[in-house]
Design a protein around this nucleic acid. Structure first.
Lengths: 187, 187
DNA sequence: TAACCCATGTAACCTGTTACATGATTAA
DNA sequence: TTAATCATGTAACAGGTTACATGGGTTA
């Protein structure tokens, strides 16, 4: 359900092919939803069937043909009415928290190793978000459209910062020096 | 998959029936995973079948009988090896962010109303987390088991705080006075 | 007497993941 | 010549949601 809306949202900003959508969904930010190409192609077919999307066949030389998808008026209305709906927030689901909540059943060393794999990933993600954010922040002439994208991006950054801060708290609790690897080494 | 582990984690702390598990999963915190009773009963049956759980039939008067589930040695090992595994962090999926990223396509007023429904829910959730956290914080004699639960809870709190701060930022961006309803009214 | 709690399930459906399939072009 | 990119799909399966089912006991 939400996937269809995420697709409409992506295509309303920039029409493209299924293949390109997959990249936009899974590479970097831009999208606050994720899906496999199988899901996306299926959802695109459904949306076209429901006349929320129009596809135009683009013939190409030296590479496969592709379909360019554009949002119809009906699709736009469909998306707009969804935006107007307040929904229940998704319940927190985190395998890391499940693991930590029974941390007393495994050796501290094991926990630290596991925790660190999550920690590194959150730091990576933060870095890639901040890289994009910097490009927005440096320009004073953002369009309203871009301002909204920037705003959403800042939520992603806040999330990652929250996770990172907590990982460091957890590492501290586990009695281990934080920041051995790279961050905040003084001097 | 992760659901089975979440069940093992919950039952290792405190054996109980399927019915009670449902409550522990969905009421308040304690669990960092969620599931419907249908899912839980199914997963319990599977876990018992795989000998990670043992069930004991409890006969009751004046109410239906129930099954008390306990984690077996095999179940404990199964959980422990999972805890030792680092996994890829779940990609951020947020319908609110999808909505805001195309905020320019709807009236500001609509966005504010939608945003507020999420905002209120995050504040509610935070309040309930903090209520439980206070009980942990007031006691200096926490067991190691409880310390780990408290630690996990603090992650939930950080998440909610991050969402709340961002909602306020977004409301500010939309040019609306924040905190009309209750929070941080000075004097 | 209506609604809710206790307690456990089945069935149909939708969503999401993994594996499989094709076939030309281009870069290492 | 191996792997990666472009481009779009099908099929089987696992995970999750919604609806349906039962039936006594308690609370308003």
């Amino acid at each position: 359900m939400a996937l269809s809306y995420a697709i409409l949202a992506a295509l309303i900003n920039q029409p493209c092919s299924g293949y390109d959508l997959v990249k936009r969904f899974n590479k970097s930010v831009e999208c606050y939803w994720s899906a496999s190409h199988q899901q996306i192609y299926k959802a695109l077919a459904k949306l076209e069937d429901d006349e929320h999307l129009l596809s135009e066949k683009i013939e190409q030389e030296n590479r496969p043909n592709k379909k360019l998808y554009t949002v119809t008026d009906s699709g736009r209305r469909h998306l707009q009415q969804w935006i107007g709906q307040g929904e229940a927030i998704a319940p927190l689901k985190s395998d890391l928290l499940v693991k930590l909540s029974v941390g007393h059943t495994v050796p501290t060393e094991t926990l630290l190793i596991t925790l660190d794999t999550y920690y590194q990933q959150h730091k990576e993600k933060l870095k890639s978000y901040q890289f994009i954010a910097k490009q927005y922040a440096q320009r004073p002439d953002l369009s309203r459209e871009e301002q909204f994208q920037y705003l959403s991006l800042r939520a992603g950054i806040r999330q990652q910062l929250a996770w990172i801060a907590w990982c460091e708290e957890a590492m501290g609790f586990l009695g281990q020096p934080v920041a051995v690897r790279e961050s905040s080494s003084v001097s």
